[in-house]
């Protein structure tokens, strides 16, 4: 089984996770830029974070045979801090980078005017760069945030096929299905979507234009829930072909629209010469 996790924050995970993910069939990931728990207070903090997403993290992933791509954006939560507004000036140059396959996560957190401004500006950047977009839907007031997101996406003029609306559930999926946008689902250990509920949704809505991710990060989450959901699909009578559509072909199709998806894995020198563990520099 080959798995492409289209939304996972590997920066927050350990090398043990990479080992377990690779053993479970995860061969490719996309890491969206997002909040890191501690609010950042200046653009320099974001530049270093973005540099890690286009530098260190893909290198680290490659040592475990996992292909790593990123999405770059100022996230909605931190868009509310005026000290971080200048991050928007940094985003376009990162969108040119080789492993950046989308703009994201953008969207709403508390649905404020500052979030509106960042969302609209970054949709325009995606159109300019010819990249797909990853839209985060808020945890609170999800329905209102979703409807407003769909309106802003429509106003931006971006091709809906380039947009995934993420963190959907049984209530919010229908509105997205009525558009040309992709539907994203994050499978969590306790709250939100579970593997079995995901399988029920796949039965109802089919496997087209659907992305299923673990959204694993620094909070309670599990990077193997992609695999668990794939197993639940098989147990429920879906074919291996259906599983491959959801967990490989769909993310390849969606992020492939960037023209930058590269799924060949080159072993890093350290992996070749010093075994499979991340080598620690002496200095």
């Amino acid at each position: 089984m080959r798995i492409f996790d289209p939304h996972i924050h590997m920066t927050s995970r350990t090398t043990d996770d990479y080992v377990r993910m690779a053993a479970a069939g995860v061969r490719a990931v996309v890491e969206p830029a997002f909040w890191i728990g501690q609010p950042r207070t200046n653009p320099g903090s974001f530049a270093d974070y973005f540099d890690a997403l286009v530098g260190w993290e893909p290198y680290r992933a490659s040592q475990f045979g996992v292909r790593h791509h990123a999405t770059i954006a100022l996230n909605p939560k931190e868009a509310n801090d005026p000290r971080c507004t200048a991050v928007l000036d940094l985003v376009p140059r990162y969108l040119l980078k080789e492993n950046v396959v989308a703009v994201g996560e953008i969207g709403y957190d508390a649905i404020t005017p500052a979030e509106d401004a960042a969302f609209t500006a970054q949709l325009a950047m995606a159109v300019d760069a010819g990249l797909p977009v990853l839209v985060h839907t808020p945890h609170r007031e999800k329905d209102r945030g979703l409807r407003r997101s769909l309106d802003v996406v429509a106003e931006s003029g971006i091709d809906e096929g380039l947009v995934v609306i993420d963190h959907l559930n049984e209530v919010t999926v229908r509105a997205v299905r009525d558009t040309g946008c992709w539907a994203g689902f994050s499978i969590y250990p306790q709250t939100k979507m579970s593997p079995d509920r995901m399988v029920a949704l796949l039965r109802e809505y089919g496997t087209e234009r659907v992305l299923v991710n673990s959204a694993a990060d620094w909070g309670t989450s599990d990077p193997l829930l992609t695999r668990r959901t794939a197993e639940a699909m098989l147990a429920a009578g879906f074919s291996a072909e259906d599983v491959d559509t959801v967990f490989w072909r769909n993310p390849v199709t969606f992020y492939g629209q960037s023209g930058k998806l590269d799924l060949t894995v080159e072993p890093a020198p350290a992996a070749t010469f010093a075994g499979s563990s991340i080598a620690r520099g002496g200095s």
Partner: peptide, 13 residues
């Protein structure tokens, strides 16, 4: 010198 030593640590030929 530190660079060469780091190569040895990292397994760089």
């Amino acid at each position: 010198r530190q660079g060469v030593l780091k190569c040895v640590f990292l397994g760089i030929p």
